[in-house]
Every structure is written in structure tokens, then in C-alpha cells.
Amino acid sequence: MSEYIISLAGLTKKYGALTAVDRLDLSIRKGEVFGLLGPNGAGKSTTILMMLGLTEPTSGSVQVCGIDATMHPVEVKRKAGYLPDEVGFYEHRSGLENLLYTARLNRIPVQEATERAYLLLKRVGLYEVAHKKTRTYSRGMRQRLGLADVLIKNPEVIILDEPTLGIDPRGVREFLDLIVQLSREEKITVLLSSHHLHQVQQVCDRVGIFVGGRLLAEGDIPTLSEKLFAGEPYIIEAGVQPLPDTARLQTVLQDIEGIRSIQFSEGLFRIGCQRDLTSAIAGAIVRSGLALTHLQRKTYGLDDIYNRYFEGGPVYEQTA
């Protein structure tokens, strides 16, 4: 089991009648970037708190770096860095002072800590403002300082809870790039929780989809979409003029074998198929006398996975 740096088994957390995390099993390998994806209130933060021993699970076990986080939280926290979603710093202290304080709490000798702090500040692009009070920092700067703060103790695992919340798109990109870069260079395992699909898709090796306290699926993104959309791995979007109703289009396409669903949204028909039927569909539409204005074969992204799970209900619902 040594290749797994984080392993959760049957992890459950109840707040009275509410079950925040429900029998969660999850294993994360060393060096990978894992995305924990779920809507707000899915229990992501609670899971993370349990990993750090900041709250006790109702049942089940958490192992981080082979250490039981509930029994030995201090040892876990020595090896794991945690960046909360809204990280706070001592506002009347400079960025550097804040980092040095964290270093002291980790018992890093002053000289080494100072050197590391400067390096990290440089790395996250805050070198110029190292001596400015943190209350003058912007949201993005705080978040980057937070990353430096997590890294100063030289962790094996970093756990980031919604790290990109409230940063502008460019900032998000830079921030995520920085995380990936650090993870690759220093072989740090990263657990990233988010409800931003694209960001997770951009950086994560593997993704776990977490809804209502349960892990619905996990795997890399191609595997996930295969698993989730087993019946209809292809979606073909077609724009047709003049707009027929779904039933009419269905009669047009009824001869083609392999079409599973047809639904209409935002001016386009989305046709779910078992095989790649792009050309057959195009032919059928054109032959029926309708004008084909748009035709695109889509592969699944996290968006679709997300919709599928969070907005609930099968795609077939709207099929006429």
C-alpha cells in the first residue's frame, strides 16, 4: 500500500442527522495531482479537514503518508500542507514575516527558513512585496502567499481547498500552472478540491466526483467519460434550418441505427449515438430537405460529466 500516499477507508462524518461524508473510499498515489470535484456543500472540505485531523470522523479511517490522521494529526501535519479556501494572514505583518512564523511553527532553523522564504516568494512572484504588510495584498497575491506558506515546510502532500476561488482568470491559470510545475519538479502529491470543472480538467491527473458525501466516480478524464457515457459515447450537435420539432427530426433519422437520444437545446439538436454517425446523420438531414447549418462531433468534457451528475436525470428525459 506504500504507493498510496492518501488512503481513506469507509470514511463517514455525521453532523447530527446530516451525513456530510458517507463511507468514502479513496486512494491517491504518490506524485499525482488529484482533483476532488463537487458542488458546494458536497463534503469536500469536511473530507479535507478529516485528512488533517482537524475534525474527527464518525467512523472509518484516514491515512496520510501512512500515518493515521485521526490519531496522530501532528505527524500528518508535518508532512502535509493545507491551503484553505480563504487563507488568512496576520495583516499587520509582512508576507515574509508570515512565512517565517509558519517556518518557526515547523521548527525550521531561522537561517534556512529565511532563505527558503525568499526563494518561495520569488517563485510565487511576491518577492517585490515581501516586506509589505499582507493587508495590502490582493486576493490573488494572498493565495500565492498561501502556496508559499504551504511549501515552506517542504511537504510531501499539499491539500488545496478551492484554491482558485475569487482569483481572476489569468491569475487562476498562473496559479494552477505553478501548482502543476511544483508537483512535477518536487514530486509533491497534490489534492485539489474545486467546483470549477475546467480548472480541474486542466491540471489533474485523476478526478474524483464527489456529490452529497459520496464519491460517485473516479479516474482520469477519458476513463471517466467512457464509464459515465457507456451507452452513447458520441454526441453530435446539429443545427437545422428551418427549425423542426424533435419528433420531426426523429422521423428523419429513424432509419439510422445506433442513435440513442435526441434533444434540443440552445438552437441545436444534440444527438447521442453509439458509434460515430456524423456522416450518416448529415446525409439523412440533407436528404429530408432540411438545411444543415451546423454539425459538430463532441467529446465529453467535465462539463457534461458535471451536468450528468449534478443537474441530475438522464439525457433521455427530453427525448421525444
Binding site: L54, K77, Y82
Partner: peptide, 14 residues
């Protein structure tokens, strides 16, 4: 309220 508590508690201290 300053958000520093969870950061400090994530350090290896009791």
C-alpha cells in the same frame, strides 16, 4: 475571522 486559525492549525502543533 482573519482566516489564520485554520492555517495555524494545519501546522504540526498541538
Amino acid at each position: 475571522n482573519g482566516g489564520t486559525l485554520s492555517r495555524i492549525m494545519a501546522q504540526p502543533i498541538h
